[in-house]
Structures are given as C-alpha cells and as structure tokens.
Design a protein around this nucleic acid. Structure first.
Lengths: 109, 109
DNA sequence: TTTATTCATTGCAATATTACGATTAATATT
DNA sequence: AATATTAATCGTAATATTGCAATGAATAAA
C-alpha cells in the first residue's frame, strides 16, 4: 500500500487530484506567485527568493512543468521560466466547476 | 528532510498549499462530489460507492473534516457527513485570487 | 583552452501518505 | 443481557515526497 488506487476513480477525479497535488506545496505556490509578479525568472532567482537549495527548486520546477503550469525557455546556460496562462485558466475552470455545484444543494447535517 | 520547510513561506502560501493537499487525492474529490450529489451520507455509503476499505474512507473523512471542508453529525451509531459550503466558498475565492492575478500580466518566455 | 555560470539529475536520508486488517467504543436491536 | 451495526483508531507495510550535497552537462566568458 501507500499507493493511490487511481483505478477506482474517474479520469476527472484523478485529474483534479493530480493538479491539486501540484499545488500542494508552499514552495510551488510561492514560485507561481513570483512568476506572476515578475513575468519570468530563472532558477537562481528562485533560490534567492525562496531560500531553498538549487536542487530543490529545480525539482519543484519540474513538477510544475510536468503539469504544464509553467514552461521554460533555454537562454544560453539559463532557463527562463514563466506561467502557462492557458493551463492556469483551465485549472481555474475545473476547480470552479467542482465548487459551483456545491452551492446549489440544500445545506445539510 | 522529507519535511516541508513551511517556515520559509507566508501564511497565505502555506494555507493554500494545505488546502490543495486536502484536495490532492481522487478519493477525497470523489467524496466531495458524492456529498454534493446526495447532500449527506454516512461512511458506509462511501465504502460502497468508492470501493475502499472502511478504515481508509474514515481516514479521508478525517482529513476533509480537519480542513473544515465537511462536517459530521452523530445520529445513533452513524455519523452523517455533509459539505461545509462556507469553507468551500472561501477556498474557491482563495484559488480564484491566485489564478486571477496571473491573467493580468504579459505573456512570457 | 581554461574557468565560471547555470541548471538538471542522481543518490540518499528523513518524513509523510495511502491502504487495510484488527481492535475498540458506542449505540441499536433482539 | 446478548448481539448487531457503525465508525474511529491503532499498528503495520508499501510507497511517495521533500530536501540537499554531489555530480554532470551545457553554454558563456576569460
């Protein structure tokens, strides 16, 4: 065990959970917020900004990149990272869909 | 290591990450969706619905309860669970705040 | 060419999460 | 009282995540 039984759930449920997992670390929230603020930056900037080791930042960036929340452009020895606004908009819609249906029901117990 | 350095981040960043972590499992998404659909249900209903063991469902319910996303009312030997709509609305606002600022900037790299 | 800069990757240790059987506690039912 | 139902909790195993030092690869600068 220790492994999520994703076979038991719908693609939609797995997808939302996966995105939520991508947002489930304050460093990754901080990276997203910083990228929104400065539009684009490199790994080294985030190391200074967040105070985590370079390898750790790199790991968080990879996770965000795998979810297509950010993208990177090679510039010599540097890689310029930025937000993928389309993905973020899609995620926002998915969360809102989940939340909106809740406010329609009667209250409860 | 293996422990999140939450001291490095703002309360807001930690809070959003914590909520995201609560949503970061398909079973918990499924529980939320099911509760929205049927308004209220008990642990046993979710065991049948999701196909996970009773102890596992109980664990997921506790996590959702700790985040105040759901609440439970004791009814004899049963506990009736339901969505806490206020919390869900607050969460929705927090996520939208995070995402909305992103669409204002220039695109990027 | 040598050195510096930048970042991904690897390997490891510490901790967290997921899942479930077994047990316990509490209330209903007979 | 004895039994059934329901769900929390405990203990344990398997796996995932977090963090960092060290290394490697790639380009830039001297």
């Amino acid at each position: 065990m220790g492994v999520t039984r994703s076979d038991l759930f719908t693609d939609e449920q797995n997808k939302i959970a996966q995105v939520a997992k991508g947002l489930a670390h304050p460093a990754r929230i901080a990276i997203i917020q910083y990228l929104i603020k400065v539009n684009a930056c490199i790994n080294g900037d985030l190391v200074n900004e967040l105070g985590l080791a370079q390898a750790t930042i790199s790991q968080h960036l990879r996770e965000l990149k795998e979810l297509d929340i950010i993208q990177g452009t090679i510039e010599g020895t540097r890689i310029s990272y930025c937000i993928n606004q389309n993905t973020l908009k899609t995620i926002q819609k998915e969360f809102n869909t989940l939340f909106d249906t809740a406010s329609k029901g009667d209250n409860c117990c």
